[in-house]
């Protein structure tokens, strides 16, 4: 296996005559924080579903954690973590039950779940809440717990789909501390966001427009290229050309 977490070559997904994802080509390095941006309807979710082993591409090649997206979907699923703003934890299970459930799904042993579970709970400062239902926690805590659960089985790559939507600015930053820590531990982070300041925290950013990948570079280089000081403006210049939004 090489040191690429993700490789994509002309990856395409077509629904009838509609090219939701249109020949995207890119690599993500191991341990990188990779920002995956795009306007509404640009094809981000469709692309992520293919990379997570949930949907077959129409054409093109891709590997995730070294596994082929056509033939090794189950191996991909075991090697990645996933978290989204919309769904992540079971609200009617307790904090600890959620941890046990996800640990079990990913095949960790009971002693291992116990050991790591206690670690997660104490790191997040949730010791007093471990037996509370997740539904009773404030949104910010839920999001941080959801992230810790998504990387509980130490996946090679974690996919985060708008993980900080609606979260207050202080918690949003605490969340990014967790992302940095995970990356420092060697976990590759693949993240989408609508907050352009968060795009700056990524090592590299890609911007999708109408199914195509229109830009891919470091935040600094993108700003240079588009002759501006803000990522907001880079995104605006690229996305306003979109015909699908």
């Amino acid at each position: 296996m090489n040191n690429k977490a993700i490789t994509c070559n002309k990856l395409t997904k077509q629904f009838g005559g509609f090219k939701a994802v249109d020949q995207i080509t890119f690599d993500v390095d191991s341990g990188e924080i990779f920002g995956f941006l795009g306007a509404n309807g640009a094809g981000k979710t469709t692309a992520m579903r293919m990379l997570c082993g949930l949907s077959y591409p129409t054409s093109g090649e891709a590997t995730v954690a070294g596994f082929n997206v056509y033939k090794q979907q189950e191996k991909i699923k075991a090697s990645i973590g996933y978290m989204s703003q919309k769904f992540s934890l079971y609200e009617n299970l307790t904090v600890y039950e959620n941890i046990e459930f996800y640990g079990g799904v990913y095949g960790l042993s009971r002693p291992e779940i116990k050991k790591r579970g206690e670690n997660v709970v104490s790191t997040l400062g949730l010791t007093n809440e471990a037996k509370k239902l997740v539904g009773e926690l404030p949104l910010g805590w839920k999001q941080k717990l959801a992230f810790s659960v998504a990387i509980f089985h130490r996946p090679k790559i974690v996919f985060l789909d708008e993980p900080t939507g609606g979260v207050d600015p202080v918690t949003r930053r605490q969340f990014w501390d967790l992302i940095y820590e995970a990356a420092a531990d060697g976990i590759t982070v693949f993240v989408t966001t609508h907050y352009m300041d968060e795009a700056e925290y990524c090592n590299r950013i890609s911007v999708m427009v109408d199914g195509r990948m229109e830009a891919l570079d470091t935040p600094t280089n993108l700003k240079k290229k588009f002759n501006t000081h803000s990522m907001d403006d880079v995104f605006y210049q690229l996305a306003r050309k979109a015909e699908r939004s």
């Binding site: 306007a39 939507g165 609508h194």
Partner: peptide
């Protein structure tokens, strides 16, 4: 404007 991209927000 929640969940709406930068262009539509503007």
């Amino acid at each position: 404007t929640t969940g709406v991209d930068v262009v539509s927000r503007k």
